[in-house]
Simulated assay, not measured.
Amino acid sequence: MKEKLFNIIQIGDRSNQISRFFDIFITVTIFANIVVTFMETFQELAFLSTWFRVIEVITISIFCVEYIFRIWTAGYLYPEISLCRARLHFLISFDGIIDLLTIVPASFLSGFVIFRMLRVARIFHLFRLNAKYDSFNVITTVLYEKKNQIISSLFIVLVLMLASSLCMYSVEHNAQPAVFQNAFSGLWWSMSTLLTVGYGDIYPITPLGRIMAIVIAYLGVGAVAIPTGIISAGFVEQYQRKSTLSNFRNTDIKEIAEIFVDKQYAGKTIEEIEDDDQATIYLILRDDLSILPQKDTVLKLNDIIVVRSTEET
């Protein structure tokens, strides 16, 4: 019974009709909870507050039951470790923390600001739903692949922000002591300028400050373009190379191809993949390693396998 329940509550299992129904049910529940949270902020809808509270209690109760079930079946989610460690692993995972932060605010006084803010966490349920499907897989794969380049570009942006804020503070402090009170004021200005937001609440008035602002604004265009270009290039590469194993059988691959391993196939062995999908796997690319596949080699998420179809066409 526990294993059947685990298979049902696992989001993204397209082969299980009951699990698919549960996905739809929990999605509707999450959206209902979020909509009620938004509607409660409208004074014009105060006469519906009782109904909003009822819907909120029902949806939170569903979240509580789901949270308990996920803790109970955590051993199937992490079969390689003991049951106690598996449950602890789930509790500190992204899904477990989001589930807990969704439930906790409803258990305390709603008057405290911190608990009202925690109610925002329920929105992140949508990430958990989407994480099992292709759209979110593409995003996470691109960010994982390009993490070093993105971190480097963000470091460049940070250096430019610090340098421009200190320069602007040095130039404008005497002319606008109330506006550029300290380096943080300059940091706020540099952030809004470099990221091309341009709030306009802080701006230079001296000639030298304005000249610097023009230069920094141009640098900001390039600074924002660097991580944007990296991520865009990653998306193009991902869609050019991506031919997921889920539709591999229907793809006529006569030559060698590179295929990303998605969450549906992560954890399977080479033998299982080759038998199920009529394919020959020649090489596994994992991080910076090239692995020669064995029959019992287990594929991991975001692996790239060099594969060729063995079906006769």
Rank of each mutant, 00 (worst) to 15 (best):
H89L: 06
I68M: 11
I55Q: 00
E44G: 10
S61Q: 09
L48P: 04
T73M: 01
E56M: 10
W51V: 06
A86K: 06
R87M: 07
A46Y: 09
R70Q: 07
E40C: 08
R85N: 14
F63M: 12
V57L: 11
L83W: 08
F38Y: 11
E66N: 13
V65C: 07
L88R: 02
E80R: 09
S61P: 04
L77S: 07
F63C: 06
I68V: 15
L88S: 01
S49T: 13
E40V: 14
R87S: 02
M39T: 01
E40R: 15
E40N: 08
L45E: 10
F69H: 01
I58C: 11
I71V: 15
I62Y: 02
A74L: 02
E40I: 14
S61F: 14
I60C: 07
I81E: 03
I55A: 08
C64P: 05
F38K: 05
T41W: 08
C84E: 12
T41L: 13
Y67H: 13
F52L: 08
F47I: 13
E56L: 10
W51I: 08
Q43H: 14
S61H: 10
T50L: 09
T73A: 00
S49K: 14
T37L: 12
F63P: 00
T37D: 09
T50A: 12
L45K: 13
I81T: 09
A74P: 03
L88K: 02
L83T: 12
M39P: 03
W72P: 03
F42S: 13
W72Q: 04
H89S: 10
R87V: 01
V57N: 10
S82P: 00
G75P: 00
R85Q: 13
M39V: 04
E40L: 11
C64E: 11
F52G: 04
F42V: 04
E80H: 09
F42G: 04
L88Y: 03
C84Y: 09
S82K: 06
I55S: 02
L45C: 10
I60V: 15
W51F: 11
F42Y: 14
E44D: 11
A86L: 06
M39H: 02
R53C: 05
L77I: 01
M39S: 03
T50P: 01
L77R: 07
F63T: 04
I60W: 02
F42C: 07
S49F: 11
I71W: 06
I62K: 01
Y78I: 01
R70H: 03
L48A: 11
E40M: 15
C64W: 07
I71R: 05
S82M: 00
F38G: 07
M39W: 02
F63K: 00
T59S: 05
L77F: 06
I55H: 00
W72G: 00
L48E: 03
E40Y: 09
C64H: 06
T73V: 08
V57C: 07
I55F: 05
Y67E: 05
F38V: 13
Y67N: 09
E66D: 15
I55V: 14
T50S: 12
I81M: 11
S82E: 09
R53I: 09
R70Y: 01
V36P: 02
R87P: 00
I62N: 03
I58H: 04
F52Y: 12
A86R: 06
V65Y: 04
F38C: 09
H89M: 06
T73H: 01
W51M: 08
L45Q: 12
A86S: 15
F69P: 00
